[in-house]
Design a protein around this nucleic acid. Structure first.
Lengths: 156, 156
DNA sequence: TCGCGACAAGAATCGATATTTTTGTCGCGA
DNA sequence: TCGCGACAAAAATATCGATTCTTGTCGCGA
């Protein structure tokens, strides 16, 4: 009989996950093997490997399984279908967050909210306000003062 | 006497912050006016304006003052001096996190840790392991299986 | 060998409460 | 007008115990 996928043993070896984890993740619906043999044994696809390895990385980065699940929900809801699979994205990860970076900005994979705050814009904004609110020619000399020494907890 | 900076009133108008906030932030060392008149009145520099407006944005984005402080500490520790001021960066923000995006990746401005997890690399990694661990020519047919329908909570 | 069920240790999450921060408001004096 | 001090409401954080979630381990049967 031809091998139609990876056995759990192989997957463990490749991903570094334990057999117990594979089983639990399957039970909880996080990832079931792509196929199952007539004898009831798991056969993981190559895609599964990627997914599992990604999940492992997240775990190692301190993201709990529960968060990973939430991320996946957000991802599938956020990204049009599975057109853009995980492999095209970059994840920015810490214990508390999972950011997904894609072409048009970033969003929190858990909450699903988008937010990028380009600080450079603020400068422009202030300039605009200057023109509007103040009547006299502004003090542009101060502008050169940029990038000087700054005390420890001080902004900029 | 020539105007050497912005009065608190002006700053309030421009930044939308309250006078109380300016005072408190000064007391807690977050940002003191660049200068103080002989009469003891605040004079904010243009740099201060940028900083204050940035802080305001963060506040609006749901970041607490305490987090903002931590971010600033990390920033000054992380970025060589103040050579790269806030204006060159992009912040990715949510209530829980403040990411700073700069040339070489991203890092959490609060913890100061760096972590970017490029999912694409994982693919390569697996391929490498394949070559090492398994003796037979791999099943590349499975590779085409990418980007198919995926169940709700399922990875990839 | 592979998967299953069951038990238990360890982690993570949740809720409610106490503590600390941040901000608004008021009155005073320069 | 500007800043200060003081009081109080609102917001954020820390803490602690009770649940719930993950994973390791063991023994069983296919």
């Amino acid at each position: 009989m031809a091998e139609l996928g990876f056995s759990s043993r192989q997957v463990c070896k490749i991903t570094g996950l334990s057999a117990r984890q594979l089983r639990y993740w399957q039970q909880t619906g996080l990832l079931s093997p792509a196929d199952i043999t007539p004898g009831g044994h798991a056969r993981y696809s190559f895609t599964d490997l990627i997914a599992l390895k990604s999940a492992r990385r997240l775990l190692d980065a301190g993201v709990s399984l529960q968060r990973i699940r939430k991320c996946l929900h957000s991802l599938t809801r956020f990204l049009p279908q599975s057109q853009t699979p995980l492999r095209e994205l970059s994840l920015v990860v810490t214990g508390d967050v999972v950011l997904v970076l894609h072409a048009a900005g970033a969003f929190d994979a858990i909450s699903g909210q988008e937010w990028v705050l380009p600080v450079a814009d603020i400068l422009q904004e202030i300039e605009a306000l200057q023109a509007t609110d103040t009547a006299r020619p502004m003090q542009w000399e101060l502008f050169t003062e940029f990038a000087e020494d700054s005390g420890e907890g001080r902004i900029a």
